[in-house]
């Protein structure tokens, strides 16, 4: 390599570096734009109810199932309010959890224990903990607010013939189990098709794939199936959703301590 050649290479790598830092700022704002658009398109559903079946599968293929009724109230300018009522396994039938989710400050969470008729306020530090022994962490199933993450656009990519934006998002809240998540966002509909999760050591942890998207009220996309595969343990969890209903007339009153005790 001659000196001239070397200088050229050095100069061009300097140029390259420059363009990287410029495009980095661009990628951050573009990532945020995509997240904002996705959020905008899912705004206005007001409330929803749905039934969810969870199938937990371990490495040996043994399965466990749970049935949960999920009720959500959209809260403008804050995280949603959610009520989950467990129907099976039957030993926890009637157990219900109420969550007021927030973007950056900790979620507020209550648990109703039917045997004791006791409502317990619980702390929300275990965001990274498994939801009902599944491969979904609490942070995976809680309301997804824009401010919960910072974003970066990575590239465009086809996923199963669907044009997608690939973005990375980095949890901005405390106690997350992830350094980053890589999400494939459908370019047409701004809905997530796949999310890959990296653990605190930035090692590949889980992959979530969405299937059977259906549109409700001509606007809101909901997946019939969500499959979470844990690459480190070989376990997986499938969430199957049905009986989605929107704008059912729920109010704040349906998401308080008394309604938690009454929930069926």
């Amino acid at each position: 390599m001659t000196i001239t050649q070397f200088t050229k290479v050095a100069a061009s790598s300097l140029l390259l570096l420059g363009s990287i830092s410029v495009s980095h700022a661009d990628d951050v704002s573009r990532g945020l734009e995509i997240a904002k658009e996705a959020d905008k398109r899912d705004t206005g559903f007001v409330d929803s109810t749905a039934k969810m079946k969870m199938i937990l599968k371990n490495k040996q293929g043994q399965t466990n199932s749970r049935e949960v009724k999920v009720i959500t109230l959209e809260v403008e300018g804050d995280g949603d309010k959610g009520l989950s009522i467990f129907n099976t396994p039957k030993d926890i039938k009637g157990t219900a959890s109420l969550t007021y989710s927030h973007a950056l400050k900790p979620d507020e969470q209550w648990l109703y224990l039917p045997a004791l008729k006791r409502v317990k306020r619980i702390n929300s530090k275990n965001k990274s903990g498994p939801f009902m022994g599944s491969e979904f962490a609490y942070e995976d199933i809680s309301s997804q607010e824009i401010d919960k993450y910072t974003y970066k656009y990575i590239k465009d990519e086809k996923l199963n013939d669907i044009d997608c934006f690939v973005i990375e998002r980095y949890p901005a809240y405390k106690h997350s189990g992830y350094t980053r998540q890589v999400a494939w966002i459908n370019k047409q509909e701004y809905r997530a098709e796949k999310i890959v999760f990296y653990d605190r050591k930035n090692t590949l942890l889980k992959t979530l794939t969405y299937a059977g998207y259906q549109q409700y009220l001509n606007k809101f996309w909901r997946a019939d199936e969500m499959l979470m595969v844990n690459h480190q343990t070989g376990k997986s969890t499938t969430l199957s959703w049905n009986n989605y209903q929107f704008k059912t007339g729920l109010t704040d009153k349906d998401f308080n301590r008394n309604s938690l005790k009454r929930a069926k």
């Binding site: 900790p106 702390n123 530090k125 405390k174």
Partner: peptide, 9 residues
């Protein structure tokens, strides 16, 4: 009374 913080109850 109960005071709930992220780590403590």
């Amino acid at each position: 009374a109960q005071l709930t913080t992220e780590e403590w109850l």
